[in-house]
Amino acid sequence: MAEVIVITGANSGIGKEIALTLAGPGRHFFLLARRVPELEKVATALRETGAQATVRPIDLRREHAWPGFFDELAAQDIRIDQVYHCAVRMSVGAVHNTTAGDWEEIYRVNLLTAADILATVFPEMIARSTGRVVLFGSISVNSGYPMATPYCATKTAIHAAWRSLLPEAKRSGVGLHYVSPGFVDTPLFENFILRGVTRQQTRQCALSLRVPISSPRRVATTIVRKIERGKTFVVTPNSIRLLIFIFRHIPSTSRRYFGQMFRSLGVEK
């Protein structure tokens, strides 16, 4: 029986590259995302490698679709072997400019979907003593991320969930991985919800922070390699490791970064 791999946000960025990295015969991919044409392209590329691919259009921003999707697979007696929760939503703007709709969207895509995965697939994997769940965090987990508060909050929550569930996962032989990518050149940057700032300002802000920006393909390859080696805490690229260490242990450095961020986003003191 084919190994079943579910990837959310598989139409672009890290999700797409992870699918392409894992592609091969004997694997059945379920690709979840909002935009069907891009999703179909990924599916075609996967099929060319000999893998099976099923496209599932889901708008995680609005529908509460995950438990339904899981039940549907269970009814067909399909057991999920690996889940990659790559779908992500982010807003840039001050909290007082962020609308209730933005909070809701980001909360649903980033956190609620992760919670649904942990509440449905994860217990079933524990019962079978096999499987893999991969959650994506962010470097902002270590320092906070002003002007992107909802994003930072949801990612910090995912980190806490990972830490709480890891001992149980380890005991039963299930892989529960937390991935902290640095700045990756993905369409996430094009799809920001902008509140009170312009796209030009956001781009300038990203450049002014002088953080290395890596390609999604390279990041995906590293992530898959490290996960297959059994690492539960994956940081990539390596230069980010240093940044995380500094942010975590010397909080005042992050404040300097934030100052720079505020200046380039035109927030006055």
């Binding site: 001050a94 906070g144 508060t149 909050a153 949801t154 806490a160 969930a161």
Partner: peptide, 18 residues
């Protein structure tokens, strides 16, 4: 723990802005 993680992330970011 997850929900409190959310509060922690929210707090750290909001504090710098507020």
């Amino acid at each position: 723990a997850t929900s409190k993680g959310f509060i922690l992330g929210l707090h750290r970011s909001l504090q710098a802005e507020a």
